[in-house]
């Protein structure tokens, strides 16, 4: 009899993460790769990588959960037993890791959110609605402009002694302000740390506006790998910020835990590369709404379709 294992996959805009846990919520193995705007192939690569690391002779995958912005597509592709939004997944994962957590700050590639936890239950949350300023994508593009490798960005920022002030209200303004400061001749590290601070300010003024941030505070998402931003948060909030090594996997971990309730006799195989998945988008054209209908094909057989606003779309 094989032991049960549960697979959680978080397909974000920038990176795709997978976690396999056992019955006691211990992480058996995990994987992290870039999505490169191709979730189907990213997941294929991810699963074949997992295959090499995972002990499938003693464990059997009994449930799959997907979350993140491509959750529906990948969920249908893998036959997931649960497809859930990333806000809930992150909260569940973090509560399991840090049972006393009160605030989760999360900054990802395209969005940022704050989740408030009261007694192991989400009590409030917010997600950025205005713009992409203060997300990973913005930071990456500005690092490129400064010719800094994003992995070294935090270290360089920490060297700063006099961080510059950057208008943080909006990406466009922040960027032109940054160029202006660079052209005056400010040091790179000062600009880098200025950027970190602007991200934190933008986050606190937009996403976290009106929310009470109580300790313990856990900081997650791709941007939490940037020690410059961590330091800026600590300076601004005057509190200790907890960042764990698996912060970037928390969504996948959370959805894996949630999937445990939806155990099923799965025909899941690690040899997903044998299948060819394809998305074809067609316009409905039956009324002026022109809904985009997403059709998912597995080996050229239609498995699922969605995107219709009315019944006509599926006919």
């Amino acid at each position: 009899m094989k032991n049960k294992a549960y697979l959680g996959i978080d397909i974000g805009s920038i990176s795709t993460k997978a976690v396999i846990i056992d019955d006691n919520n211990n992480i058996l193995t995990s994987e992290y790769i870039y999505t490169n705007a191709d979730p189907i192939n990213a997941v294929k690569t991810l699963i074949s990588k997992l295959k090499n690391k995972f002990d499938y002779n003693s464990y059997k995958i009994v449930s799959i959960g997907t979350t993140g912005s491509a959750r529906k597509l990948i969920g249908k592709m893998l036959g997931a037993t649960i497809i859930k939004n990333e806000i809930t997944a992150h909260a569940i994962g973090t509560i399991n890791m840090h049972p006393d957590v009160k605030t989760i700050l999360e900054i990802g590639g395209q969005d940022s959110k704050i989740i408030l936890i009261d007694n192991k239950v989400i009590s409030d949350y917010a997600m950025n609605t205005l713009c992409a300023a203060g997300t990973g994508a913005f930071l990456t593009s500005q690092a490129k402009r400064l010719n800094i490798n994003i992995d070294d960005f935090g270290l360089i920022a920490l060297r700063s002694k006099r961080p510059i002030k950057i208008a943080a209200r909006c990406t466009v303004f922040a960027e032109s302000d940054l160029i202006h400061k660079a052209q005056i001749g400010y040091k790179k590290e000062d600009i880098a740390y200025g950027l970190c601070k602007s991200i934190v300010n933008n986050y606190l003024n937009n996403v976290a506006k009106g929310k009470k941030i109580l300790t313990p505070i856990v900081f997650q998402g791709g941007v939490s790998k940037n020690i410059g931003v961590i330091k800026a948060f600590e300076e601004e909030l005057k509190q200790e910020i907890i960042v764990d090594d698996i912060g970037h996997l928390m969504g996948a971990y959370g959805i894996a835990i949630m999937s445990k309730k939806y155990e099923d006799d799965l025909k899941f195989s690690f040899n997903i590369n044998e299948f060819k998945f394809e998305t074809k988008v067609s316009e409905c054209n039956k009324c002026t709404n022109n809904c985009e209908i997403v059709n998912i094909y597995k080996n050229k057989i239609l498995v699922d379709r969605w995107g219709n606003r009315c019944e006509n779309g599926l006919k």
């Binding site: 939004n85 809930t88 239950v121 989400i122 009590s123």
Partner: peptide
């Protein structure tokens, strides 16, 4: 539209969790 759906779903989950708690 997806953003709205994500938020609604999370809102519902949150209410459900509070209930169960």
């Amino acid at each position: 539209e997806l953003g709205i759906k994500t938020r609604l779903e999370a809102f519902y989950d949150m209410l459900n969790m509070r209930r169960n708690n």
